[in-house]
């Protein structure tokens, strides 16, 4: 559909000026400057810079702790996305039934969306604290947060729990937009409920799934910082220190500006890769609409 437009030579530029000003000063300039700094050695106190080529990148990638963090982040994101999308789709399907009181159920199933990662961190810190955590008591295991192998599981559960509401909202909207005619005609052709779900509903949901895949990736990589800072502080012994936490420590605690800038560039490459994937797949979306 073509929108009718106004004719005015200067007005659109004036309208865009505030946004563009903020974009340049607080987004483009800092991004470019961060990337530039990743090729420099930066003095921790004076801030004096000296060109260093790929020194920072070589340094961070020859650090076993960083490599561990790199692999950990990928596995963490994979778990958060997989579990998150699976459970939210299940809940969305339950919520898509025609029964009384569905609005009430919807509200109380999506409300953790309004809670912060830091709050999720505090809640799960309490639930799993070794002294008297309720879930330590019920599982008969006290070392959930003091053993690195299980601490990461607690972080995953907390992260999935916190983002469930967000995912349910999108799946629910998508489920409501699945054309009933397609389901009915499949039913007439003798397809059972399970077949109908996998062949028709699932296909119609795939654009939403891709969108949520991208959003949950950035959530897992970036937004879980507060959760981890409150729940484990990256520990025990670095077992929950994902890339963003590593960057924060290098930059803010250890004043290794050059390393931190290089780590930012690594994260940027990741975001570009995922966004590229989203654009590739959004082509497919057209067929379904």
């Amino acid at each position: 559909m073509r929108q009718s437009t106004f004719n005015n030579k200067f007005l659109p530029y004036i309208l865009l000026l505030p946004t563009m000003f903020i974009l340049v000063v607080f987004l483009f300039y800092p991004a470019i400057e961060t990337f530039r700094l990743s090729f420099f050695k930066v003095h921790p106190w004076t801030g004096a810079t000296r060109f260093a080529g790929f020194y920072n990148f070589i340094k961070i990638f020859s650090n076993p702790e960083y490599l561990h963090s790199f692999v950990l982040s990928a596995m963490f994101a994979f778990a958060v996305i997989g579990l998150g999308l699976f459970f939210s789709l299940l809940i969305a399907i339950l919520l898509n039934q025609k029964i009384a009181g569905i609005r009430f159920y919807r509200t109380f199933l999506i409300w953790p969306y309004a809670l912060s990662p830091a709050i999720a961190g505090a809640l799960f810190n309490f639930l799993f604290n070794p002294a008297n955590g309720v879930l330590c008591y019920f599982t008969g295991y006290r070392s959930w947060l003091t053993d690195g192998r299980t601490a990461i599981l607690v972080v995953i559960i907390a992260a999935v729990w916190k983002n469930l509401g967000y995912n349910v909202i999108f799946y629910l909207t998508a489920l409501r937009n699945v054309p009933q005619a397609a389901l009915e005609s499949a039913s007439i052709d003798g397809a059972g409920a399970i077949k109908r779900f996998f062949y028709i509903t699932f296909a119609f949901l795939s654009p939403t799934s891709f969108f949520l895949f991208v959003m949950n990736t950035t959530y897992a990589y970036f937004a879980t910082f507060g959760l981890i800072d409150v729940l484990t502080e990256g520990g025990p012994a670095g077992s929950t220190r994902i890339l963003i936490y590593h960057l924060y420590k290098d930059f803010f605690v250890h004043s290794k500006t050059g390393y931190a800038a290089a780590e930012s560039l690594v994260l940027f490459t990741l975001v570009v890769g995922i966004t590229f994937l989203q654009f590739q797949t959004s082509e497919k979306k057209v067929h379904y609409q």
Binding site: Y29, P30, A31, E33, T34, F222, F251, S264, F268
Partner: peptide, 8 residues
């Protein structure tokens, strides 16, 4: 996103 440009 913020983490990508946080240093500068």
């Amino acid at each position: 996103p913020v983490p990508v440009r946080i240093v500068a």
